[in-house]
Design a protein around this nucleic acid. Structure first.
Lengths: 143, 143
DNA sequence: TCACAGTTTAGAATTATTCTAAACTGGTTG
DNA sequence: CAACCAGTTTAGAATAATTCTAAACTGTGA
């Protein structure tokens, strides 16, 4: 077996067990999307961009499935949704504690490691409410 | 002239000059929307919510005009757009330095004064980019 | 009072996203 | 290993927020 094929098989096997552990049936589509997504640990995709990517790779997956899958992965804790743009939703393969630069012009997200930024003085939330997350978005533009 | 009418006339006059200063022609619709918006200094509205409010007040303004006006006011620096919800855009009458609690369940925004929260350690942006704003959103839920 | 640039508007158009109902497919069972 | 079925995928319709368009209207300066 050629090296590339061996690696691909390996990736598929890894992805499959990762999905199973997350309680998701490893269907062809989910394995293919997950393989693309989790190849790198700091990817930021849009439903549209991921659909383009998977399509260009010659794989046939409907846009509806991409949406479904992104939401399922998010619920399973494999992805995190990032809300920075009124026009579309981003999903981040980095689910750990971290923040973002957002390039408003290009619609590009860049991770800022969690230890880098410190947010002090967050007041106690109104009674009966629990803090779920503190998001910091550093909006930047081409000067 | 009755007290209420006198106050209303006063508000209208104030609003009118405020709009003129912002370089916006004080049309009936703009004056009416501005009067509602800037009565309080910490309002958070949605195009839909503002349109409902103005309609219930018996004023006839189209939804398209509400959208136009919110964007014009934002460009003129009278409002600030807040992006916290993938489903809709919020506009904030507080344009100063401050942050927000966002009640995910209710879709409600609450201001956190600018001095309260301190963000330290924001890294220099990638070359050629300038920081435009640092947004902090404290997402909370009913416990 | 006139004229016109700037506004408003109804309704169509657009765009991201979700829904629906029918076809399909992993995984399990006999 | 064949049949079954709950869970998935899909095309296309539906939805919802927002923007666009072209025609009617209105402040404002002369």
């Amino acid at each position: 077996m050629a090296k590339a094929a061996r690696e691909s098989k390996n990736l598929t096997a890894l992805t499959t067990s990762r999905l199973r552990q997350a309680g998701l049936r490893p269907t062809r589509q989910r394995v293919e999307l997950a393989s693309l997504l989790f190849r790198d640990h700091d990817r930021h995709v849009t439903a549209e961009s991921l659909h383009d990517e998977v399509s260009k790779a010659g794989v046939k997956v409907s846009l509806a499935t991409v949406y479904n899958t992104l939401h399922q992965f998010t619920q399973a804790g494999l992805l995190r949704q990032v809300i920075v743009d009124a026009a579309r939703s981003y999903f981040d393969t980095n689910t750990g504690d971290h923040q973002h630069f957002f390039l408003e012009n290009e619609g590009l997200l860049i991770d800022i490691p969690g230890e880098t930024i410190a947010v002090a003085g967050v007041p106690a939330p109104p009674p009966g409410l629990a803090v779920e997350r503190v998001d910091v978005v550093v909006r930047v533009r081409r000067a």
